[in-house]
Amino acid sequence: MAAYIRKVRTASGATAVQIAAKQGRRDKVLEHLGTAHTDSELAALLATAREKLLAGQQELDLDLGAGTGGASMITGKRSRWLIEVIDTAWRRLGFGVVDNEAFFQLVAARIVEPTSVADAGRVLREIGIASAHRNTFVRTLRRCTAHSYRDDIAQRCFEHAAAAGDLNLLLYDVTVRREALAVRAEVRDLCLEPGRSQESMKLGAA
């Protein structure tokens, strides 16, 4: 009964890697090695499966030095292209004027998943960025006002838009509900005041 490597597509779209053997007309699974969700995970599982299949077979002594031995292991994941796109856009827009890595991490986390400062570390770890400590993020937000981060970013945005020959404004709200209400209160737009609907404003205007 010769064993072989078997790849099976799961319902979620992942790929299960197994060592199996033919038993009559059916495949008998001898060992389930794991499920791969990315090409790198699949390559690692296939390499482990090949090592298991070749275990115990004679090897030629080619005097290539001591091998590392052991099965392949996935020690980490990194969303390389996503991180590079965010970093490239950051530098191209001139936002590097804000020399603060923690601030960049907060912006990257909000782009990937609009969430709270407390949850930013989780988002960053999921895409493979070594997150700064939560206390560092809190201190960074305080520096935003003290060191005029908003003015520096706004100036770079204006310069970039002006150089392109066309000025456009895009407002992207990533605030939580309480923060959004505070911003609306500062704007003093009557249509956005609590208790006032658009219909009531129309009646008042009439």
Rank of each mutant, 00 (worst) to 15 (best):
A2W: 10
R139H: 09
K202N: 09
V8L: 06
R196N: 11
A146Y: 08
L170I: 15
N168E: 13
R26S: 05
T140R: 00
E186M: 11
R139G: 04
Q105M: 05
G204T: 07
E51N: 13
L171P: 03
S12M: 10
L53E: 01
D152C: 08
R196G: 04
L93A: 06
E179V: 07
R177K: 13
S79D: 14
E41S: 05
G13W: 02
D27C: 07
A205G: 07
F103E: 00
D151R: 06
A14P: 02
I83V: 11
F104A: 06
T68I: 14
S79F: 12
V29C: 04
L42N: 03
Q105L: 05
D152A: 14
K77Y: 09
A162H: 12
L181T: 09
E159A: 07
G121C: 07
L192S: 13
V107G: 01
E199D: 13
H37G: 12
V112S: 00
L141M: 09
H147P: 00
I153W: 05
E31H: 06
A132N: 05
M73G: 10
H37Y: 10
R156D: 10
S72Q: 12
E51A: 13
A89Q: 10
L106H: 00
A185C: 07
G165N: 03
L171N: 11
E159Q: 14
A205Q: 13
A180M: 14
A3P: 03
A2T: 15
S40A: 14
V123M: 02
L171F: 15
G195P: 02
T68Y: 12
W90C: 03
L170H: 12
I153V: 14
L42Q: 03
K28Q: 08
G24W: 06
I153K: 06
R91Q: 10
I129M: 05
L169S: 10
A43Q: 15
S131K: 00
G94Q: 00
F104Q: 07
A21K: 08
E31W: 08
L30K: 01
I83H: 04
C191G: 15
A44C: 07
D27E: 09
E199H: 10
T15Q: 06
R178F: 09
L170E: 12
G56T: 04
R91D: 12
A2Q: 15
R139L: 08
L30A: 01
D27A: 09
R80F: 15
F158S: 15
A102I: 05
I129A: 02
T145H: 13
A66K: 15
L169V: 15
V187D: 10
D63Q: 15
R156F: 06
V123Y: 02
E84P: 01
A43P: 06
A162Y: 07
L181S: 13
E199F: 07
A3T: 08
E51T: 12
C157I: 13
I127G: 03
L82W: 11
Q198M: 10
V187E: 12
R78I: 09
E199Q: 09
A11V: 08
R150H: 12
H32R: 09
L124P: 00
S116R: 02
P114L: 01
L167P: 02
T48P: 01
V85L: 13
I19N: 02
R78A: 10
G76N: 13
A3W: 04
E199A: 12
R92G: 01
G195N: 02
G96R: 04
A161L: 03
R92V: 03
A109S: 05
R6M: 04
Q18G: 02
E159L: 06
D61I: 12
I111M: 06
D151L: 07
F103N: 00
